[in-house]
């Protein structure tokens, strides 16, 4: 049974009190780990990361049926929700002039001996060993902060094709990185 919803029955005087308790339990269970992960994608913007965690927890609370899932699935879902919130925030903040030159995605880390640069190189290598079709959709979507539909337009192929290539490309990448034992 999921620890999040355990022992909640009939102890609360009001719905508000129960909601408050549930949110507190969610924070307790997932708040710390979520914040650590979210901080990686907000750079060092701690305030932003905390806002993202808060919004994620509130969304989780609103979708309490999903909190009955097993913990590993709840965690995967929470991370995905949080990532989406970060991406949406970044899209709103950015005033990138898309029509002019798109920012180059830095594919190679300068090998400075840090673990981080090393894993960037491993990921870049894995990406390079994918087929052109698979690599292209990963680059044109996630790595450039674009949606499936935006990438489809740029690549001149149907969105369904982008989605499907992305699926097989991501699966292939996952296999490659699993073999190389890159820490997540």
């Amino acid at each position: 049974m999921c620890p999040v919803l355990g022992h909640l029955d009939g102890r609360f005087e009001s719905a508000d009190a129960e909601a408050e308790h549930r949110i507190a339990v969610l924070y307790q269970e997932f708040g710390g780990p979520l914040l650590r992960h979210v901080r990686k994608s907000t750079g060092n913007d701690l305030q932003w990361a905390e806002d993202v965690v808060q919004e994620t927890i509130v969304r989780a609370w609103r979708n309490s049926a999903r909190l009955q899932w097993e913990p590993s699935l709840i965690w995967a879902w929470l991370l995905t929700v949080a990532r989406r919130i970060v991406i949406d925030g970044r899209r709103r903040k950015s005033v990138r002039p898309q029509e002019v030159e798109p920012p180059e995605v830095d594919m190679m880390a300068v090998p400075d001996g840090s673990e981080r640069a090393l894993s960037a190189m491993i990921v870049a290598d894995a990406l390079r060993s994918l087929s052109e079709e698979h690599r292209e959709v990963i680059e044109q979507t996630y790595l450039r902060d674009r949606t499936i539909n935006e990438a489809a337009e740029i690549l001149g192929i149907p969105p369904g094709t982008v989605k499907s290539r992305l699926y097989y490309g991501i699966r292939a990448l996952r296999e490659l990185l699993r073999d190389k034992g890159v820490a997540g």
Binding site: K40, G43, V110, V123, I138, L143
Partner: peptide, 21 residues
């Protein structure tokens, strides 16, 4: 989803890596 959930962070290593020469 459980299997793939760490992959975006691995890809983020590329986004956040020190810039290429």
């Amino acid at each position: 989803l459980i299997e793939l959930v760490e992959l975006p962070e691995q890809l983020d290593e590329l986004k956040n890596a020190p810039s290429a020469s």
